[in-house]
Write a protein that binds this DNA or RNA. Structure first.
Lengths: 138, 138
DNA sequence: GTTTTTGCAAAGTATTTGCAAATGG
DNA sequence: CCATTTGCAAATACTTTGCAAAAAC
């Protein structure tokens, strides 16, 4: 049976308070401020548990260590190919359905039972797009 | 300037000959049969080069080390949540466009310039679906 | 001959595990 | 009390790097 732990609660709240899809290490330093004795292993163990509990999502960026996402709303991810920030893009019901229908149809091609889908977008984020424009003008 | 290398050629051919999205290590053992002196660092270095050259794609499964894909046709990936095999699903022109249009529209939500998209499907592959059915009957 | 690539070993990241002590129910 | 969780240190898994020798051009 799963027992409450102060550490797990802090990790979950800390993750929910940020929108930047931190790595385990980033969360570790964040939480160390409120609880200096905490160990990195506790972070990894709890993130793994929280994933299994469906409270948190582990995501794999193109570059760098795994990141974590505490957003439980329906959304997809955008990764900037320049600064590697990851952003959530929330999607509305009707969009979801349109895409899902199209995608689920694809899994018929290999005779598999598709349970879920994951969509990633890549490109330049707002910030990096702006920077790119400045550099062109120089 | 990039020079030809027997090793790189072998790695690329070996990857193109298989459909199982091997890890660097799996390719290493495969290629060791034809060239026993080869080192694992050569595999990693060349896979990384081949990625930059656009000959090969590095993909991140939910579980385990990075995998590599030598299929240059338009396709998406299906990962079995049971056996963790990864399969290609080829998509036809008209399907691609429908999905792409829907997806690219999403990136407008965050004011980013979307350059590419990646779709993953998850579920039970044909093999594991069959096995699951047998177990239910027992 | 110069530049690139190789194989090997060592180093570097990221993550997991074993274990005795602490905490939760 | 018993089960779970913790912090620490050590172990593991995966990948990259430095370097002298070999291969490509």
């Amino acid at each position: 049976m799963k027992k409450y732990s102060k550490q797990r609660e802090l990790i979950l709240q800390s993750l929910k308070n940020r929108i930047d899809h931190p790595t385990a290490e980033m969360l570790y330093y964040d939480i160390k401020n409120q609880m200096p004795e905490i160990g990195i292993a506790t972070i990894y163990r709890n993130l793994s548990d929280l994933c299994e509990m469906g409270e948190v999502q582990k995501i794999k960026p193109k570059i760098g260590p795994d990141r974590f996402d505490g957003n439980k709303e329906e959304h997809i991810h955008f990764e900037c190919t320049q600064c590697h920030d990851i952003m959530d893009i929330s999607i509305r019901e009707n969009q979801t359905k349109k895409i899902d229908n199209e995608i689920k149809r694809l899994s018929e091609n290999i005779d598999a039972e598709c349970k879920s889908a994951n969509i990633w977008l890549y490109g330049l984020c707002k910030k990096c797009k702006k920077l790119a424009n400045i550099n062109i003008k120089d």
